[in-house]
Design a protein around this nucleic acid. Structure first.
Lengths: 204, 204, 204, 204
DNA sequence: GATGAATGAGCGTTCATTCAT
DNA sequence: CATGAATGAACGCTCATTCAT
C-alpha cells in the first residue's frame, strides 16, 4: 500500500503543467504569442488541445504563468546577489551575468518574456507592472547603497534604468542572433563590456 | 502626358494619407497594433473604414509606412550629425537628443515604432531589419571613427548596442511615464546622464 | 438629387434587422434557441453568418430583441383594452383574444417567447422579469377595478395568475398542436371556454 | 445462479443512483439543465464525475429518469384519487393538492420537471409526450365522468387543459417566489382559489 | 472619392464522454 | 468501484478585406 490516495497526484499534475508550459514557450518563441494557436501548443506537447484547459484557465494564463515563474526567480536571485555583499562591480556583474546565463540556459523563455510580456499592454497589468518595477527598485537600491563609490551627481534611478536597458538589448540582440554571438565567450564578453562601460565609461 | 494613374490631386491624396497615418498612430499607441481594428482607425480619422483601403493596401501597410517614414528621417539625421563633425561627446549628445526630442514631439509615433515594429517578427522582415541594422552600423561607425578617444579594448559594435539599448529604454520608460519625468528638463537630464555614463562611467 | 446622404439608411437597416429577426424566430421555433446555430439563422435569412453581427450584438441579443418587441406591443394592447372601458367579461375576452390572435398571426414568435424566454433563467433577468410582472399587474388591476362584480373573497392577484396560466397553456397546447385545434373556430372556442370558465365556473 | 450481471449489491447501487439523482436535481434547479455540467452534479454528490457514467448512460438519462420517477408516481396518485370516488370538487381538490404538496416537499424536482422536461423538444419524445398526455386524459376522464354536474356546453378536454395550465402556473409562480407565498397556508389558499374558480367562477 | 453592407477564414473555449489505472 | 486525465466535435464570435452603390 504505497500512498493513501494517489488520485489526482499533485506532483504529476505539476509535472504535466510544466511540460505544457515548456511546449508553449517553444511555440511562443517560434511564432509569437498571437501567432501561436492553442492547437499548436498541444501539438508541440503531444496532447489534445482540450487537455490544455485542464491545466490552464486559458491561453493568456499560460503566458502569465511563464512570466511569473521567471520573474519570481529573477527577483529572488537579484536579492540574493545584493544581500551577499561585495563591491558594486561584483553586484553588477552578478546581475548581468544572471540574466545572460538565464538566456543561455532557456533562450526561449527569456525571449518570450522580453518580447511578449514586457511590451504588451495586455499583460502589463497592475500585477506584472509592479513585479517589473520591483527589479528596477532593487537595482536602484544597489546604486543607492554604493553611493559613496559613485561620481557626484550620478542619479541612481536613471542609472538603474540605463543599465537594465543596455542589458535588455543585449538579450534582445542575442535573440535576434544577428548582432552578437551566442556562445559562452561572447556572453562573458558582453557582460564585461556592459559592466565596464557603466563603471568606467568608454572615454580613454 | 502619360501619368501612371491620374489622381485628381496628388497633393490632397498625400494629405489624406498622412491624416489617416496620424489617426492610426494615435490608435496604435492607445490600444496596440493588434488591438486596433481598422474601424477604430477610421473612426479616429473621421472617415468610413472602407476608405482606408483607398490609401493603404492593408492594415499592415499602415504600420510599415509609419516605420519607414520615421526611420528614414532618423537615419538621415544621424548621418547628418556624424557628417557635421565634432567630438564624440557632441555626436552622442546629438543622437540621443534627436530621439528624445522626437519622442517629445511625437510620442505616439515613437512609442508605436518601438513597441510594435522593433519587437515584432511580423514586421522585422528583411527590409526592416536592414533599416534597423543601418542605425546600429552608423553608430558603430561613429565609435570606430573616434577610436582614438576610447579606452583600449572598447568594442565599437558592443558599445553601439549598449548605447542604443540604454537610449531605447529611456524612451520606453518615458512612454510608461512612471519611472521618469517627461518634461523638457527631465529629457535633458536623461540625455546627459546617458552620454556622461557612457563616456565617463559612474564610478567615482 | 433625391436625398442628402442616403448612406447608412436607417430604414433599410431596420428592415434588414427585422428580416434577420424573422429568420431567427423561424429557426428558434424549429430547433429551439440552444439548438439553433448562428449559421442556421444566417442560412434561413440567406446571408453570411458574419453579417448577423452587424445587426445584433450576439445570439442572445436576437432573442432579447424578439421578446422585447413582442412584449412591448402586448403591454400596450392590454393597457388599451383596459382603458377602453367595458365590462369585466369584455376585457377578459379582449386579453385572451389578443394573445390567441397573436399566436394565429405569428405562431413562431409566440412559441419562442413562451418556450425560450419565459422559462429561461438566462433570459429572465431583472429587465425581463419586470416586463413580465407588468402584465400580471395590469391584469390584477383589471380585477381590482371590477371588484364589485366579483364574488366576495376572490383574490385579484391569484386570479390574475390563474387566468394567465390557463391562457398560456392554451397557447402552449396549440404550439404542440396535439391537444387543441388551431383554426379560427377552435381559437374562438378556446377563448370563450377560458373566459366563461373564469367568470361563471363549470359547475352546473 | 445466472444473474445477468452480478452487481455487488443492487440495493446500494440503487441508493447511489438516487443520491446522484437528487444531487442532479438540485443542480438542475439552480442552473438549469443546459447550464449544469456533469462535473457540477458530481461535485454536488461528492463523487468523481466519471462515476456518474456507472449509474447513468449519459446526462440526458439523468433528467429522463427524474421525469419518469416523478411522472409515474403522479399518474398513479391521480388514478387513485379518481378511483376513490367522491364529488368532482373533492377530486379536483385532490389533484391540485397533490401537485402543490409535491412542490412543497420537493420543490427542486417539480421545478426541473416543469421547466426542463415539459417545454423541451429534446425530452418531449414519443414516450414522454404520451406520459404527459396520460395526465391530461385522466383529468379529462374525470370531467367526463362528472358531466352531469357540469354546466351544459362545458368541454371536458378544454377544461382539463385550462385546469392544468392554471395549476402549472401556480407551481411556476411559487418557484419564482415572487408573486405568491410558499408556506402551507398560501398553498392551501392557492389550491382553494383554483378549485373554487373552476367550479363556480369568479363572477358575483 | 466615399460608404458600409457583406463575406468567411480562423481561433479560443466548453464540456460530454471514454477509459487506463 | 472509483478516479480524473484525455479527447475532440462543436460553436460563438472577431475582424480584415472586398465591392456594389
Amino acid at each position: 500500500m504505497p500512498e493513501d490516495r494517489p488520485r489526482r497526484d499533485p506532483a504529476s499534475f505539476e509535472a504535466k503543467r510544466r511540460e505544457i508550459l515548456r511546449a508553449a514557450t517553444r511555440a511562443f518563441a517560434r511564432k509569437g504569442f498571437a501567432g501561436t494557436r492553442v492547437g499548436d501548443i498541444a501539438q508541440e506537447a503531444g496532447i489534445a488541445y482540450g487537455l490544455i484547459y485542464h491545466y490552464f484557465d486559458n491561453k493568456d494564463a499560460i503566458l502569465s504563468s511563464l512570466f511569473q515563474g521567471m520573474w519570481g526567480v529573477s527577483l529572488k536571485v537579484i536579492e540574493g546577489i545584493d544581500a551577499q555583499g561585495g563591491t558594486l562591480e561584483e553586484k553588477l556583474r552578478g546581475v548581468a551575468g544572471f540574466f545572460l546565463e538565464a538566456w543561455r540556459l532557456e533562450p526561449d523563455a527569456v525571449e518570450v518574456v522580453l518580447k511578449e510580456v514586457l511590451r504588451s499592454p495586455k499583460f502589463l497589468d497592475a500585477d506584472n507592472v509592479s513585479a517589473f518595477r520591483g527589479l528596477f527598485e532593487r537595482l536602484e537600491g544597489i546604486f543607492v547603497a554604493h553611493a559613496a563609490e559613485l561620481r557626484p551627481g550620478v542619479d541612481p534611478k536613471l542609472t538603474a534604468v540605463l543599465f537594465l536597458g543596455a542589458l535588455e538589448i543585449l538579450l534582445t540582440g542575442m535573440i535576434a542572433r544577428e548582432l552578437l554571438g551566442a556562445d559562452a565567450a561572447a556572453i562573458e564578453q558582453s557582460r564585461d563590456a556592459l559592466v565596464d562601460t557603466f563603471l568606467h565609461g568608454i572615454a580613454g
